[in-house]
Simulated scan of single mutants.
Amino acid sequence: MKITITPQAAKWFKTELSVDANMGVRFYGKVYGKTQVHEGFSVGMSVDTPENPIAKTTVEGILFFADEADEWFFKGYDLTVDLDEKLNEPKYLFTED
């Protein structure tokens, strides 16, 4: 799994979230909603401390990651996080890895 954060999304996260040192933005699977590849689940995010990351990247000084507990949700896919400019919120795109 690979995580890609677009420059527009990175700017949004930097403006909207306060991320302390040794913490990052965690992406995970949550019940309800849907993604382009999951029915009944959507992408959640939280400011959290990485435990056992399966993927991580640092953009604009912010660590973005997914932990081992959510491998089931991301297995077989790469995640790109972009900005939905109409809604002014992140949008999540999955591609097969």
Rank of each mutant, 00 (worst) to 15 (best):
Trp72Ile: 01
Arg26Gly: 09
Tyr77Glu: 04
Pro90Asn: 14
Glu16Tyr: 05
Gly44Arg: 09
Pro53Asn: 07
Glu89Asp: 02
Asn88Phe: 12
Gly76Met: 09
Lys75Val: 06
Val19Asn: 11
Tyr28Ser: 12
Trp72Arg: 01
Ile62Tyr: 00
Ala69His: 11
Arg26Ser: 11
Gly44Asn: 12
Thr80Asn: 02
Lys56Gly: 06
Phe41Ala: 03
Val31Ile: 11
Ser18Gly: 10
Asp67Ser: 07
Trp12Gln: 04
Lys75Phe: 08
Trp72Leu: 01
Glu96Ile: 09
Val25Ala: 10
Glu16Leu: 00
Gly29Asp: 05
Phe41His: 13
Thr4Asn: 15
Gly40Asn: 09
Glu89Ser: 12
Phe94Tyr: 08
Lys56Gln: 15
Tyr77Ala: 06
Ala9Asp: 03
Pro7Lys: 08
Tyr28Asp: 08
Asp67Met: 00
Gln36Ala: 15
Val19Phe: 12
Gly76Ser: 09
Pro90Met: 09
Arg26Met: 12
Ser42Glu: 15
Lys11Phe: 01
Glu16Cys: 04
Phe41Cys: 05
Val47Ala: 05
Thr35Gln: 07
Phe64Val: 02
Phe65Val: 04
Ser18Ile: 06
Ala69Val: 06
Trp72Pro: 01
Thr35Phe: 07
Phe74Gly: 06
Ile5Pro: 10
Lys14Met: 01
Thr80Phe: 02
Pro53Trp: 04
Phe65His: 13
Trp12Asn: 03
Asp20Leu: 11
Asp70Ser: 07
Glu71Pro: 00
Met1Gly: 13
Asp97Thr: 13
Leu87Ile: 09
Pro53Cys: 03
Phe13Lys: 01
Lys86Gln: 14
Asn52Met: 06
Thr4Tyr: 14
Ile3Ala: 02
Met23Thr: 15
Gly76Pro: 10
Lys75Cys: 04
Ala9Met: 02
Asp48Cys: 04
Leu79Asn: 11
Lys14Asn: 12
Tyr32Val: 08
Ser42Arg: 13
Thr49Leu: 06
Lys75Pro: 00
Lys34Trp: 09
Lys34Ser: 15
Phe27Glu: 10
Asp70Ala: 06
Lys2Tyr: 09
Glu16Met: 14
Pro90Tyr: 11
Val59His: 07
Asp97His: 12
Met1Ala: 14
Asp70Pro: 07
Ile5Gly: 10
Leu87Glu: 15
